[in-house]
Design a protein around this nucleic acid. Structure first.
Lengths: 157, 157
DNA sequence: TTTGAAACCATGAATAG
DNA sequence: CTATTCATGGTTTCAAA
């Protein structure tokens, strides 16, 4: 997706919703000095353009039983199987991000596991079966912070 | 945060909101066969417990001018300055995640940049000034997918 | 957990700038 | 093409039980 042509009201809406996905449109409208219907129409436009891709709640991982977060980089034994590997990664619910990267690895993923045993299980039973070579894991023992992209009123070109 | 004691209604609520942060409470209530007030009270409880930590909208990074996503691992020259470094990373808006990790690095961060030049600027001007040794960058040229933690009705112990 | 009531909000149509 | 007003029905929220 290319850079979208957005004005300052669009940015204000995105900035607002990025920190509170449930903020009422009317409240945003009051903060921006426009009508509620205007916000509603902008949000429909941003969604249709693919700039806004839904909303989700933030859940504390440890509270729901995921104590381990890890990043794993790897090369594939058979690089022609990229797409197939992606599809199989999609079926492993613990895998929450998949990137194609430059340099050090072919692919780089983020996953959550219940504990270290579960992580080992995921790596040995689920991931190795996909045909990986040279796997490297990086275990996060503390996520110090996590936040959204910076959305400015006016982004410079 | 330790594992919370949650029942299946709590999990159903989290699962529902994790894919649609704006779903009306009454609609969730109908799907779960309880009153709207019950959902409202559960969400207040989950929020007070720290299980639910707000909600945010999903924004397409490229549409708002961020074409480059990178992960950077590094060691600190002076490991006693962890906390100070975290505070300074917090002031760099492009840095969206900070982890303390085992093994390969002291710290591991995720950031977004407008383009490769901007990434280079961030690394050389902003990050190096924090006192880093042995930095390694990993540039994602495609985020194949990104999704939420798996939330099941019933998580096994 | 439920009900019920008041306040509030989302949504779309029609209209005006 | 985008914003506004307005009407309708749905939603949030709180107190009381």
């Amino acid at each position: 997706m290319a850079r979208a042509q957005l004005d300052s009201l669009d940015y204000k809406i995105l900035h607002t919703l990025s920190s509170n996905g449930r903020k009422p449109y009317l409240e945003i409208a009051r903060e921006c000095g426009v009508s509620g219907a205007a916000i509603h129409q902008r949000i429909q436009k941003l969604t249709a353009m693919g700039v806004l891709k839904g909303s989700e709640c933030l859940i504390d991982a440890a509270s729901v039983g995921y104590d381990t977060c890890a990043y794993i980089g790897f090369f594939l034994k058979d690089p022609s199987k990229f797409d197939e590997v992606v599809e199989r990664l999609r079926e492993i619910p613990e895998v929450v991000e998949v990137h194609f990267t430059t340099g050090q690895y072919d692919m780089f993923i983020k996953l959550y596991a219940r504990n270290n045993d579960h992580l080992l299980h995921l790596i040995h039973e689920e991931l190795q079966a996909l045909g990986l070579a040279r796997t490297e894991s990086l275990i996060s023992f503390k996520e110090v912070f996590k936040r959204q992209l910076p959305i400015h009123q006016r982004n410079k070109d």
